[in-house]
Amino acid sequence: MKLGLEEMLQLLQEVEQGDPLDFADLPMDEERLRRLVLSDLLQRDEQLQASASAEECQLIYLLSTAHLVLENLLLHLQLLRLQQPEGSAAAQWQALLSRFRRGDDGGA
């Protein structure tokens, strides 16, 4: 199934209803940022589909997702360390590890 930018934006909006992103006080338009990211990903997908097999595409997407999840986890842990009193970040880290060991990603 080939979806265009507008359909992807709508699906992303549905995903974010269950797991909203925190843009905090960043000086950027959220919708414009979503559009920019999805537009770039659709362009990369088109190039990849033209040059790789379905199996290679799936492997690339799985590895890319793993890299992004790991990067997000590291950023989250760095924020915890900065925001939490000594010791409480370690407890949250253990709780997070327990979730991953159970396979409960909480929508992440």
Rank of each mutant, 00 (worst) to 15 (best):
R35Y: 11
Q47F: 01
R44V: 12
L75M: 12
R35Q: 13
L80C: 03
Q92I: 00
L9I: 06
Q84K: 09
L41I: 11
L38E: 06
L63E: 10
H67Q: 15
L97N: 03
M8Q: 15
R32H: 10
Q43Y: 09
N72L: 07
S64C: 13
A95V: 08
Q10V: 08
G106R: 13
S64Q: 10
L21M: 12
V37I: 14
Q43N: 07
L70N: 15
D104M: 02
M1N: 06
G107W: 10
D19C: 09
A90D: 15
D29P: 00
E16G: 03
L5N: 14
G103R: 02
L42K: 14
L41Y: 12
M28Y: 12
L74E: 05
D29G: 00
R101A: 00
L75C: 12
L97E: 04
S88D: 01
A90Y: 10
A50W: 08
A50V: 06
L79E: 11
M1H: 07
L82H: 09
K2A: 13
A52I: 04
T65H: 09
D25V: 00
R32I: 03
D19W: 10
C57I: 01
Q92L: 12
L63A: 15
Q13C: 02
E56T: 15
L26G: 01
V15W: 09
L74M: 08
L26K: 03
V69T: 05
L33M: 08
R102P: 03
E71F: 04
R102D: 13
E7P: 04
R44T: 03
L48P: 01
R35E: 15
L26P: 04
L96Q: 00
T65Y: 09
P85L: 05
E46H: 13
E86A: 15
Q58E: 04
Q92A: 07
R99D: 00
A50D: 15
Q83D: 05
C57V: 05
L36C: 11
M1T: 07
G107L: 03
R99P: 06
L36R: 12
Y61T: 04
E14V: 13
H67C: 15
L82I: 03
A24Q: 05
A50L: 09
E55F: 11
E56A: 15
Q92D: 10
M28P: 04
S53M: 12
L38R: 04
L11Q: 12
F23T: 06
R35T: 14
A66E: 14
L59Y: 07
E31L: 11
G18T: 07
L36H: 14
L36T: 06
G106Q: 12
E86S: 09
R34C: 00
R44K: 13
L26N: 01
Q58G: 02
L96T: 04
N72C: 00
L73W: 05
V69F: 06
Q94S: 04
D45K: 06
Q43D: 11
P85A: 07
G87K: 06
A91V: 11
V37R: 00
R35S: 08
E14I: 07
E56M: 14
A52Y: 07
G106L: 07
E30S: 13
F100T: 01
E6N: 10
L80V: 02
N72F: 09
R101I: 05
V15T: 08
S39C: 10
